[in-house]
Simulated scan of single mutants.
Amino acid sequence: MAAIVYFRKIVETAEFAEYEFGDDPDNFVRRMTMDKASCTSAVEDGQVDYTFLKASRKINAVHTERGAWPDRGMSVS
């Protein structure tokens, strides 16, 4: 079974980057915050599930690779 998650940065400060994410890039329904110092994430709705983990891991991977928090992206598996 294939899984896809899209994400888009909506806010970035010196301390954190906030993203909205979900399976429909035209209708994001969830948000997460990435702590820049620790590279950890927290989901706004408290639901730590596969979609959240997939988006969080992809955002961190892109950040590690490029040295900047991505503006948008997706992860497919």
Rank of each mutant, 00 (worst) to 15 (best):
G73K: 02
A17S: 13
Y50R: 13
Y50N: 05
D23S: 14
R57H: 13
E44V: 09
K36I: 00
V48P: 02
P70L: 01
D35A: 01
M74W: 10
E12F: 00
E15R: 06
V29K: 13
V5T: 14
M1V: 15
W69T: 01
I10N: 09
S75L: 02
S38V: 01
A17P: 03
M74G: 12
A37Y: 00
R30N: 15
K36C: 02
N60M: 08
I10D: 09
S38F: 00
T40K: 12
K36D: 03
R8T: 12
N60A: 12
G73H: 05
R8G: 02
K54N: 11
N60S: 11
I4W: 03
E12H: 02
D49P: 04
A61I: 04
R8F: 05
F28Y: 13
E15V: 01
S41Y: 09
E18W: 01
M32P: 02
V43M: 09
T51F: 06
V29R: 13
A68F: 08
F28D: 10
R72M: 07
M74P: 01
N27T: 01
R66S: 12
V76I: 14
T51S: 07
S56C: 13
T64F: 09
D49Q: 03
V29L: 13
A68P: 00
A2D: 14
R8D: 11
M32D: 07
R57C: 10
K54D: 13
F28I: 08
F21P: 08
R31Q: 15
N27K: 10
F7M: 08
K58A: 15
G46K: 07
E20V: 12
K9H: 05
F21E: 05
L53I: 04
E20K: 14
A14M: 07
M34E: 05
T33L: 13
D71W: 00
A61N: 11
A17D: 03
K9G: 00
Y50T: 14
R31I: 11
F7L: 09
A55T: 11
V62P: 04
G67P: 12
M74N: 11
I10V: 14
S38I: 00
W69D: 00
M34Q: 03
S38G: 00
C39L: 11
V5Y: 06
D49R: 03
D45F: 12
E65I: 02
M32H: 09
V48I: 13
N27H: 09
S41E: 09
Y19K: 03
V76M: 15
Y6M: 05
H63Q: 10
E12Q: 10
V11W: 02
N27W: 03
R30M: 11
Q47H: 14
M34D: 04
D71S: 10
W69F: 07
A3Y: 10
V43F: 08
A68Q: 08
I59N: 03
G67T: 04
V29D: 15
D35M: 00
A55N: 10
V43S: 08
V48A: 03
N60W: 01
E65Y: 08
S38R: 08
A55K: 08
A17Q: 01
H63G: 05
S38W: 00
T51I: 04
R31A: 10
T40Y: 03
M32Q: 10
Y6V: 07
F52P: 02
